Simulated assay, not measured.
Amino acid sequence: MASFRSVLTLTNSAKLALSTRSMASHPLAGLLGKLNHVAIATPDLKKSSEFYMGLGAKVSEAVPQPEHGVYTVFVELPNSKIELLHPYGDKSPIQAFLNKNKDGGMHHICIEVRDIHEAVTAVKSKGIRTLGAKPKIGAHGKDVMFLHPKDCGGVLIELEQE
């Protein structure tokens, strides 16, 4: 029985080493960083903010982002953030989202990248469409680029410069 366990351990270690090696040689290895935030569109920013405050979270004030057509509120978590989004102005993309989702819901996820320009080139080389020709400044004052949800498993993904 002990020899069977040794073989099983050796086999599992070899599989782990093989999978780690194959990930390291992937062309996008090391490109993606940590999850920065999950963005939630909300029809009632005050109510949503109070919900997270009631759970003991640190919640920022609402900040208008006219260039993006949104108000943002950040909910600080120990390992990430939640970004609450509410429409700002008549042409807000969040209003279009809320027209389809009256109660609000998850809008996008944001993943940090070490080099936004390298990341954009890499995803485009994989046939992933971007929502814009070049990165623009996001809510954190850093370059961001959104990836088309139809190319990302139905999820709108925001890449943000670390």
Rank of each mutant, 00 (worst) to 15 (best):
Ala2Phe: 03
Ala2Trp: 02
Ser3Glu: 07
Ser3Val: 10
Phe4Gln: 03
Phe4Tyr: 14
Phe4His: 02
Arg5Gly: 03
Ser6Tyr: 05
Ser6Phe: 04
Ser6Lys: 09
Ser6Pro: 00
Ser6Asp: 11
Val7Arg: 01
Val7Pro: 00
Val7Leu: 08
Val7His: 01
Leu8Ala: 10
Leu8Glu: 09
Leu8His: 07
Thr9Val: 13
Thr9Pro: 01
Leu10Glu: 09
Thr11Ile: 13
Asn12Ala: 11
Asn12Ser: 12
Asn12Glu: 09
Asn12Asp: 04
Ala14His: 02
Ala14Tyr: 01
Lys15Glu: 06
Lys15Trp: 05
Lys15Pro: 00
Leu16Ile: 08
Ala17Leu: 15
Ala17Gly: 09
Leu18His: 09
Leu18Asn: 12
Leu18Gly: 06
Leu18Ile: 14
Ser19Asn: 10
Ser19Asp: 04
Ser19Tyr: 12
Thr20Ala: 14
Thr20Phe: 06
Arg21Gln: 09
Arg21Ile: 06
Arg21Pro: 00
Arg21Val: 08
Ser22Val: 04
Ser22Cys: 03
Ser22Phe: 06
Met23Ser: 15
Met23Asp: 12
Met23Glu: 13
Ser25Trp: 00
Ser25Ala: 03
Ser25Cys: 05
Pro27Arg: 05
Leu28Gln: 14
Leu28Asn: 11
Ala29Val: 12
Gly30Arg: 01
Gly30His: 01
Leu31His: 06
Leu31Cys: 13
Leu31Trp: 02
Leu32Gln: 08
Leu32His: 11
Leu32Tyr: 14
Leu32Asn: 12
Gly33Met: 09
Gly33Cys: 11
Lys34Leu: 04
Lys34Asp: 13
Lys34Ser: 13
Leu35Glu: 00
Asn36Thr: 06
Asn36Leu: 06
Val38Ala: 15
Ala39Phe: 02
Ala39Gly: 07
Ala39Pro: 06
Ile40Phe: 15
Ile40Pro: 12
Ile40Thr: 08
Ala41Lys: 01
Ala41Cys: 09
Ala41Gln: 03
Ala41Pro: 05
Ala41Met: 08
Thr42Val: 15
Thr42Gln: 00
Thr42Asn: 01
Pro43Tyr: 07
Pro43Ser: 06
Pro43Gln: 02
Leu45Lys: 03
Lys46Val: 15
Lys46Tyr: 03
Lys46Glu: 09
Lys47Ala: 15
Lys47Arg: 13
Ser48Phe: 06
Glu50Asn: 14
Phe51Ala: 13
Phe51Cys: 08
Phe51Gln: 11
Phe51Val: 00
Phe51Gly: 08
Met53Cys: 10
Gly54Phe: 11
Leu55Ser: 12
Leu55Ala: 15
Gly56Ile: 15
Gly56Cys: 09
Ala57Gln: 08
Ala57Tyr: 13
Lys58Pro: 00
Lys58Thr: 15
Val59Arg: 11
Val59Gly: 14
Val59Ile: 08
Ser60Thr: 08
Ser60Pro: 00
Ser60Lys: 02
Glu61Thr: 15
Glu61Ser: 14
Ala62Cys: 05
Val63Asn: 04
Val63His: 12
Val63Lys: 14
Pro64Gln: 02
Pro64Lys: 00
Pro64Ser: 13
Pro64Tyr: 05
Gln65Cys: 14
Gln65Ala: 12
Gln65Ile: 08
Gln65Asn: 06
Pro66Ser: 10
Pro66Gly: 11
Pro66Phe: 07
Pro66Arg: 03
Pro66Val: 07
Glu67Ile: 05
His68Gln: 14
His68Leu: 13
His68Lys: 07
Gly69Ala: 07
Gly69Ser: 03
Gly69Met: 01
Val70Glu: 04
Val70Tyr: 01
Tyr71Met: 07
Tyr71Phe: 10
